[in-house]
Design a protein around this nucleic acid. Structure first.
Lengths: 335, 335
DNA sequence: AGCACGTGGTAACACGTGTAAGCATTGGTA
DNA sequence: TACCAATGCTTACACGTGTTACCACGTGCT
């Protein structure tokens, strides 16, 4: 009944060695093309054939356990909480790091406690953790990771995080730019949309803070407008804006601003005549809606530069500073 | 200079054992709360204190190597290639599986060859691979994974994949529903947008096939319109539609349809009078633009049910069939 | 013959963990 | 006193891999 060739549950390099009639060490030399090792041509061919025949796939855990380090890069990010801008950037970073030989995985847990989250990442013993837009990368979280042998700990934040390679991009500048622009256009009673969705507070908090800072400078008033990303919520906020007699709204980003803009239209409120509207992130969506949205554009560092920086950190333990993220206002029809 | 308490590069359970003055086995018993093990109360406290003091984090690779299985679930998905609908669903699946004790990671490589991709996933020796919207989960890829000890291999596809737990949702029904709707409204010369973006062909191919099938049934004509997701490309396609005298367009999904709808507006082409427009995926975006987009709604199984199915597959090797994905046309102003 | 040396390969250890098996001590019972 | 059982802990092995050290075997040179 049972045939000899029924393969074991897990195909290991020992199985390949047995099939090729050589030792396990030889298999390792052939499959990894180990520089210093000498293996005969016929043996090499026999090993490769056996590996292919058995469908051998190396065990990354065992490999990294032995090597003392993995090729894993963990990127904490909640897929539903990022717009197109960051999605595409992260996609490019994955590709760029992949070409450098790293295995990138995204991890989307929403553990609130930074240290608990860091502990989860640390369990995987990655060679790098890259929190491009995750506010949980605190100094203490960084220590947990460093202690677990993570070579490159990178965070995007407004200010340097001690012990962490910080990549500076101050979201509050976005809020400030939006309010400054509206104030210059003569608006004085300004609403600021705060998304109620989970996972977005890392962005919305700083944007609001920047808005309030700029409002104080320009002598205008700011009202926070908590809003969920639904049709009904937008309609309610539009009504509220009219009741409060606001003459401008900063919509957090283009998605929320577009939704609110449509609600204004349904209500007969003219944009920008009655209410000026400013979005952010410069998504294509802002050019799909009418009136086209005034927005604020990011200039993120190229994925290649970013990947190279991570690679340097892993290999040398040090790397040149990444350029600061720059923001630029793009005026369109809505303000 | 050097103090005794400078901790080693990697804190292991042996370090904890040394600090607590017990054996490594005892440490394992305490930290894992091993059912059959008996450890005294004072010893237990000493171990916990030492672990906390040293900031010990277990090594997932070593653990799963010893245990023979990991708690990893790999979800192949390119973050930039999915809309809001799938993003939120995947987010919920992550949460649900996380509560069942799994560690979910998203992996976004775009290796074209299914077997090569499967080999990359297999290296991580996950306990499950869940390809909810990845066309690379072929029968052969499934074999590679099964051979590597993956217990649950799940795929979303139009037809059952041999050897893989398939979760049926036929994207071609979307194209068919759109064309059927347009034909019933008296449209006869219909364009079908095909996105040129990488990673979307898994969706667009079946949708086009369904459209062509329905067109043959209803005796209407179909023209494919390859389009990138940019303002300029949409404008060019709009001009093309006018030249070809099309009276309707199925826009692949709401995002592409909205972009094209705006281009029609700029060109003075009236929607739906001159050209009817149908999107898909029922994104909120479709209700943000004017006219509101007729769309096609998905009904995906709940994340909890999905997670439970994966869990069953892992534990029992078998699970009840997931409900088929249902599609429903939502008529609005654009058609 | 004796020696050096290149070639092709193997044996054995280490990585960090979980757990089965075993050992010492203690208390209770015959 | 002798034996059993429970308690509390340790010793030792296995998981799959990479790599260092070593061995066997020619072959050419002195």
């Amino acid at each position: 009944m049972s045939t000899e060739q029924s393969s074991p549950a897990q195909v290991t390099s020992a199985d390949v060695a047995r099939a090729a009639g050589v030792s396990r060490a030889t298999v390792s030399f052939v499959l990894n093309e180990t520089p210093g090792a000498r293996v005969g041509e016929t043996t090499r061919a026999r090993v490769l054939a056996a590996a292919k025949e058995l469908g051998y796939v190396p065990h990354a855990a065992a490999r990294s356990l032995r090597a003392g380090r993995s090729d894993l890069v963990v990127v904490p990010v909640s897929v539903s909480a990022i717009g197109r801008l960051f999605s595409e950037w992260i996609d490019e970073i994955e590709t760029a790091l992949g070409q450098l030989g790293y295995t990138v995985v995204l991890h989307g847990d929403r553990t609130a406690d930074p240290v608990a989250a860091a502990r989860v990442w640390a369990q995987l013993r990655p060679v790098a953790v890259v929190a491009v837009n995750d506010s949980r990368m605190t100094a203490e979280a960084g220590r947990v990771l460093t202690r677990a042998g993570v070579r490159a700990v990178v965070a995007g934040a407004a200010e340097p995080v001690p012990g962490v390679t910080t990549f500076i991009g101050d979201q509050s500048e976005i809020g400030a730019a939006a309010i400054g622009h509206l104030a210059e256009r003569g608006r004085g009673r300004i609403g600021v949309v705060m998304p109620a969705e989970r996972g977005l507070s890392a962005f919305s908090g700083p944007r609001l803070a920047g808005a309030e800072r700029a409002a104080a400078e320009h002598g205008v008033s700011v009202t926070t407008l908590p809003m969920r990303y639904t049709d009904d919520a937008a309609a309610a906020i539009a009504v509220l804006c009219r009741e409060l007699e606001l003459d401008a709204v900063f919509g957090y980003n283009d998605e929320y601003a577009a939704l609110l803009g449509a609600a204004f239209g349904d209500l007969g409120v003219a944009v920008p005549q009655d209410v000026a509207l400013v979005g952010a992130d410069d998504l294509l969506l802002g050019q799909v809606v009418r009136p086209r949205l005034t927005s604020i554009r990011y200039q993120l560092p190229s994925a290649e530069l970013f990947a190279e920086t991570v690679d340097r950190l892993v290999r040398d333990g040090d790397a040149p500073q990444l350029p600061r993220v720059r923001f630029e206002l793009v005026p369109r029809q809505s303000s």
